[in-house]
Design a protein around this nucleic acid. Structure first.
Lengths: 190, 190
DNA sequence: AGGGTGTCAATAACCAGTTAGTTACGGTAG
DNA sequence: CTACCGTAACTAACTGGTTATTGACACCCT
């Protein structure tokens, strides 16, 4: 049996995910990724080409995990919004990574388009058959739902800090989730 | 009268605004800022301390411009959302700058807290007097409205690209704005 | 004289990417 | 059985270029 590099490759991807999520593409350090992966820096170039290609590879994998973890349903947008929010709370690094990509590498990857297309089509279908409020571009519906879900992360810490410090952090999160789902319900109601 | 540096200072701030908006804190180049401002690099350190302090100064000024340009009204959240959206479309660099700050410098500045506090208080007041849907934490209302407004910018280019290429870009924007305002209306309705 | 304004060139650190290897191991010729 | 070979996996040390920051100095204007 020849030597196997799959484990090293995986460790490198995991480390890159953390590093890129924390510092972005420009701020990430190749040395740190190698160190965290307990691998040699040279292997990054051997397996993934360069820093940018490594970033792209990490992004595609992260998108795949998300798609597998959160099923989409145009007939239950509130449920989708809640599930997506839960996934984001469980994986905040993925949210950060997505933001970095938007700012530092706003290219349109085929994988991402392929992930969105069926969702948009499903929304259009649900609108046409009256199961969902019509009159809006399906893309806009998708954007607004995602904007609502992401608002917990895209809003400033200064605004977060203004919420009353009465309830626990757990309760604070549950309240926000409930408000979010309620708005999506109103958005979707025919 | 000693020589006047106010114009140099302003040019430096303008240049820094553009550079930080384009490349973020880590990606920005002090040399480029000085060059764009037609000033000497050394002056950045003389007037603003260092790169990070310059970034903070730029942020505070940008926040001030926004606060002056878009008046807040808890009694007309749809109108506020529309006006905020228009301002963002007119000043996309400001939106990018805010995103960079969230990722690279998530500190809570007194200026930002001071900008949010009266808005949140106004929402709480409007809820208490029945002019606005109650039952949600005022901070959540603010977050969700801003999340909706920002969704045009926070969503992936891959999703943007999926909208039908029938209408003009102008019309595309107007449609999105209308959908956005409609959702805020539903959110605010008692 | 002296502080505010501005210039020029150095410095010290940093960092992506590369060069020139070494190690581990299964196959194979003798 | 064993000495050798080819190859995949891995490594240490370096290079060339970049970058934030600073020291030293010149030019005003009062």
């Amino acid at each position: 049996m020849p030597p196997d590099s799959t484990d090293t490759r995986r460790r490198l991807l995991d480390a890159a995910f953390e590093e890129f999520a924390a510092h972005g593409l420009a701020g990430a350090r190749v040395d740190r990724i190698a160190e965290l992966a307990r691998a040699n820096k040279r292997l990054i170039y051997a397996y993934y080409g360069n820093k940018e290609e490594l970033f792209d590879t990490v992004m595609v994998r992260s998108l795949g995990v998300l798609t597998d973890a959160v099923p989409f349903s145009a007939d239950d947008l509130p449920g989708y919004a809640g599930a997506l929010f839960d996934h984001m709370i469980a994986h905040p690094a993925m949210v950060r990574l997505t933001m970095w990509k938007l700012l530092e590498r706003p290219n349109v990857s085929p994988e991402e388009t392929a992930a969105y297309r069926p969702k948009v089509a499903a929304i259009a279908d649900a609108q046409a058959s009256g199961r969902l409020a019509a009159g809006d571009d399906p893309v806009d519906v998708m954007m607004l739902v995602i904007g609502l879900v992401a608002s917990w992360f895209t809003n400033s810490p200064a605004l977060h800090a203004l919420s009353g410090i009465g309830p626990t952090e757990q309760q604070r999160l549950a309240d926000h989730r409930a408000s979010l789902v309620r708005v999506v319900e109103r958005l979707a109601a025919t």
